[in-house]
Design a protein around this nucleic acid. Structure first.
Length: 803
DNA sequence: ACCATGGTAATTTTT
DNA sequence: TTACCATGGT
């Protein structure tokens, strides 16, 4: 098909040495990688099995695999290059050699997903009676993950934490027990997969050199998203040295028939929240002297208009290296902007436009991109109402469904009965008379004996220490697992094993007897699982492979390339492109998300996320936001995102019904403006908004936000480039949680406590006003106090002091 | 031991 | 608003 441009060609044909490819959005990155792999095999005579390509998602790996296979003549691949995610590569490494770590793990280890982890942590918190608001299972887990990825041990965690306090101490305690329980269960969580693999490669020379000798050409996709551990893994394989200091790769012969090729784009780094570090890409050329750097700056995807909008937005970031992404695709259509009254209105606008596009071109592919998964629902409903088929990525995946997880739990037990989480899950599902009392007693015994739950169970049954009824029940469960284990150890085909896990366990029978609509779907899902097993069996997968696959399968894997309409988060859309893109919910607090407001770095990450969203579009880009939105069952006013301000007005076309924020901003001499200008002076504001019920929240056109908006726009378009931190901190008047004050018409100007203000309370100390309902002294305030949580006050009664 | 009810927490983003 | 958990009744 297509020829490569000069830079792409160079990237493909540079066979040896360290190579850094800075590939802008839509610059043909995937093409370069696949061509490179094909070139290595076809032209450079590299045996395919010497090539290792690492990606972050199964989706990316799968796509790359398919494209490489398509490029090579059929039958050419006697052995395939290994194209794998970091995590599945680590599983491979560990399944082979984890026992050489001599850390108590066996190659039958189980993988714990987020849900399994949460169960472990909840169990620990229960055991230790930790039940306060400051530590939730989720927050503990993210703290644990944070520590693990920085090699901070449980012992040093409490001290490491910047301010050791009650909370960090509790987390340290949970962390310690968590690690012990995982080990007792012969289980590894997602972090462990990477960490243990790195430790193994570091410690065991034989293992390291095996991979170093084998994989002479290593590629890493989306390199800007690598974290320290992943980088270390790649380095250990590519360099073959466990030395902490920089390894000597400068010798004459080191890069002979050897390469390390990393591809990334700093502006698309959107995973810092889970430990990725773009300093890694910045330091790459220093870590590897002699690195050849190739920049791909021609975009083949988007129109001029779309690219310009993206470039303008990302230019507001301070932490970046300017680059010049250009396109020859042509100007294209303007970006279509729509302001809706509420979330429902936004969704129906989007559905309507999708319908129009599909009517004109039934083959066109549309994407609806949102910041958070919870936004999907409205769009699902509006699309369904119009009978438009859609594909949704994220939310609950197939493997997260209870019945699927239950079945998998049985299979996991068959291979590793010490898996406490799987055992806890299946022991009384279906109900077999093993209740809370029995389980509590078992847990007590387990604590005393310090062995796994399964072993405890064995002891209890043999000693008859639990009363005849419970003993019988436990023993029959034990026999089920033992029988399943024997089957798994025998030569039983995969599909038969999966069937056994649903039949021999009484699971299917239980569902069949239930006869509700829900149990029908559950049965159906189990059938699906068996079908999946049949297919996997045809591909030569073992039970082990099948279970690992289920553990590592992710939401984004649900993406179907040929779907006409796809709904997904912006994160999930990374690496994809669509002729028509809708970026929805472009509102303060949502996109950028309110959780990022405190930190400049996180805000810049949100902006990169916005950049990723815009650059997914090829021809048509829609950007929408609503004036109010329902969150947790409550209607809240919303204001347009700061990112909208960063797109030049002349690139936007307003499709809103009636006046909108954009119309107001764009035409300074219109009636709106005069009205708004009078509002700024404190006059009565006659609303230019569509007359709507008795809604009285803060909207884009209430005096406050108009002023904010004007200020921000002028601040930033002035001498420019200082980013959102420039000028007076305006976050004071902006709602932290998307909540806001009452419309200015009813509010005395600024006497009360503003959202975002810091206040002092005699008992609770310093806090931040999260929400303010009503006006002046009567306002009801919601204030967040560290360590005490949310407290509600009526302004005039509360002993609150402004600081 | 199982089921129903009510209270409360939850929504960033992912392997 | 929904979904999950904990509690209490049967």
């Amino acid at each position: 098909m297509d020829k490569l441009n000069a830079e792409q060609r160079e990237a493909v044909e540079t066979i040896n040495g360290p190579l850094l490819i800075l590939a802008g959005a839509g610059s043909g990155k995937t093409r370069v990688i696949t061509y490179r792999i094909a070139y290595l095999i076809e032209r450079a005579g590299v045996p395919p099995w010497q090539i290792l390509a690492m990606t972050f998602t199964n989706k990316a790996a799968g796509e790359m695999k398919a494209r490489v296979e398509a490029m090579l003549p059929p039958g050419r691949l006697t052995s395939a290059p290994l194209i794998s995610t970091f995590h599945s590569l680590c599983v491979r490494i560990l399944r082979r050699d984890i026992e050489r770590l001599q850390a108590g793990y066996t190659r039958n280890f189980t993988i714990y997903d987020t849900d399994d982890q949460a169960r472990v942590v909840r169990g620990i918190m229960k055991d230790f009676g930790i039940d306060d608001k400051t530590v939730t299972a989720r927050s503990a887990l993210s703290a644990i993950s944070w520590a693990k990825n920085r090699s901070i041990s449980p012992a040093s965690y409490a001290n490491q934490a910047e301010f050791a306090n009650d909370r960090t101490e509790k987390i340290a305690q949970i962390y310690k027990v968590y690690e012990a329980r995982l080990q007792q269960s012969n289980a590894l969580d997602f972090d462990d997969l990477l960490i243990k693999a790195v430790v193994l490669l570091r410690q065991v020379e034989a293992v390291r050199s095996y991979y170093h000798e084998r994989y002479r050409h290593v590629l890493i996709d989306e390199f800007q998203d690598t974290n320290g551990i992943q980088y270390e893994l790649a380095r250990l394989i590519a360099v073959g040295s466990a030395k902490v200091e920089r390894a000597n790769t400068e010798g004459e012969s080191f890069w002979q028939n050897r390469s390390l090729c990393v591809v990334g784009d700093l502006d698309q780094s959107i995973y810092a929240f889970r430990g990725s570090d773009y300093n890694i890409i910045l330091n790459f050329q220093h870590d590897f002297t002699g690195t050849k750097i190739i920049k791909l700056e021609q975009n083949y995807r988007s129109t001029q208009t779309i690219l310009e909008a993206a470039n303008k937005v990302i230019a507001k970031n301070t932490q970046r290296f300017p680059k010049n992404l250009f396109t020859e695709v042509g100007q294209g259509e303007k970006i279509r902007y729509y302001q809706s009254y509420d979330g429902e209105g936004e969704a129906s606008f989007v559905a309507e436009k999708i319908q129009e596009h599909l009517r004109r071109d039934p083959k066109i592919r549309c994407a609806v991109l949102y910041r958070t998964n919870s936004q999907s629902r409205l769009f699902e409903e509006s699309l369904r109402r119009r009978s438009i088929a859609y594909n949704i990525v994220g939310g609950f995946s197939f493997y997260e469904r209870a019945e699927v997880k239950d079945t998998i739990a049985y299979l996991k037990l068959a291979l590793n009965p010490n898996d406490d989480v799987a055992l806890g899950r299946s022991i009384n599902t279906p109900p077999r008379g093993i209740g809370k009392t029995t389980l509590d007693t078992l847990a007590r015994h387990q604590k005393d004996l310090d062995i796994s739950l399964w072993e405890t169970l064995g002891v209890a049954v043999e000693n008859r220490s639990l009363g005849p009824r419970a003993t019988t029940a436990l023993d029959s469960f034990r026999q089920i697992i033992l029988a399943l284990g024997e089957k798994a150890a025998g030569n039983e085909p995969l599909a038969e094993l999966v069937k056994a896990a649903t039949l021999d366990t009484g699971y299917v029978k239980w569902l069949q007897e239930d006869k509700t609509e829900e149990s029908e779907t559950r049965l159906f899902n189990i059938e699906e699982l068996v079908t999946a097993a049949v297919e996997a069996e045809e591909h030569g997968e073992t039970l082990r492979d099948f279970i690992d696959h289920a553990a590592l399968a992710s939401d984004t894997d649900q993406y179907k390339e040929d779907a006409r309409v796809t709904l997904m988060t912006v994160h999930a859309a990374k690496g994809l492109e669509f002729p028509v893109v809708f970026i929805v919910g472009v509102e303060e607090g949502l996109f950028p998300h309110s959780r990022t407001f405190q930190s400049e770095e996180e805000l810049e990450e949100e902006r990169r996320l916005c950049y990723v969203a815009i650059t997914r579009a090829q021809h048509y880009l829609y950007i929408t936001h609503a004036m109010k939105r329902r969150t947790w069952g409550e209607e809240l006013p919303a204001e347009p995102s700061r990112f909208l301000n960063e797109i030049p007005l002349e690139l936007l076309q307003d499709m809103s019904f009636g006046p909108s924020w954009l119309g107001f901003a764009a035409r300074p001499e219109t009636q709106h403006n005069r009205q708004a200008a009078s509002a700024l002076r404190g006059d009565q504001l006659s609303s230019p908004v569509k007359k709507t019920t008795n809604y009285s929240g803060k909207t884009y056109n209430s005096a406050d936000s108009v002023r904010d908006f004007f200020k921000r726009r002028t601040d930033e378009s002035g001498a420019g480039g200082q980013g959102p931190g420039a000028g007076p901190k305006d976050s004071g008047s902006r709602s932290l949680s998307g909540k806001a004050k009452t419309d200015s018409r009813h509010t005395a100007p600024d006497t009360g406590f503003r959202v975002g203000a810091r206040v002092k309370h005699a008992k609770y100390g310093t806090g931040v006003v999260l929400r303010s309902e009503g006006a002046g002294d009567d306002a009801k305030l919601t204030v967040s106090f560290p360590g005490y949580g949310l407290k509600k006050f009526v302004a005039k009664f509360a002993a609150l002091e402004k600081i």
